[in-house]
Amino acid sequence: MSGSFDMNRNRAVDWALVVYVVLAYVFVFAPIAASFVFSFNSDRFPSIPLGEFSLDWYRAVATDPLVWEGARNTLFVGVIVGICSTALGFGAAYTDYRYKFAGKQVYLALALLPPTIPVIILGLAMLAYLSRINLSGNALSVIISHVVVCAPFAMAIIRLRLSQMDPALEPAAWNLGASEWMAMRHVIVPFCAPAIFGALFITMAVSFDEFAVAWFVSGLNETLPVKVLGFLQGQVSPRINAIGTFVFILSMTLVILAQLLLSGRGAKPADQE
């Protein structure tokens, strides 16, 4: 809100809206903030007043080989899922942009369908299917399942970017001597670059956070969220808060990076006047 007076606005309404927005954010972020605060608290149980400041729980987490294994699995899966789903999503989005064909609506509906399926159902179905073809219980099964969940996000992001492109840009490249592959490399991909990196980070973040499907199909190669559940079932430990803070910061970093890319100067359609 700017400081200057605007006679067309009611100050009381303005203030009410500010209070409303602040309250909404407090409600959403309070649990995460609490987890963050208690991760530095020396007490065994989360209670007020707080005990002393302590990094004990981080130390405990950092020395736990099970946590490291989970983190390694999460990162490994996340990076590969990010790359595969972005590539798939790009292909799907470009197909939609470039070609007209019978059944295109069905194609689009199917391509965007996976995130609308309840994750429990998807996880169960993945487990049943992957175990039948002897692919369940390893990192590859988590990767396959996560690509199914993530690719539609990548497609949606890249499709939006393509829709902002001047439809004459690609034919202009052909007309200037670029073959279809050259136009793809020198025009389509550079134009979509912000969205491609954005999709990469978002899909990685989704994979990092995804629990339900991974729980069904990961077997012994548990990702971090699955490990956390394991901890919780055994005992309630403030170590959870430390892991939670770590995962939260990692995911937020990726999401913020993606946001910067997608809303930055480079993402604007440059030819508008």
């Binding site: 202009a172 359609p269 440059a270």
Partner: peptide, 17 residues
């Protein structure tokens, strides 16, 4: 791309990147 018939487009279609 093999014709050498370059065109100036109504939107100009300059490459923004």
């Amino acid at each position: 791309w093999s014709r050498d018939t370059p065109m100036v487009w109504q939107s100009l279609a300059l490459f923004p990147f």
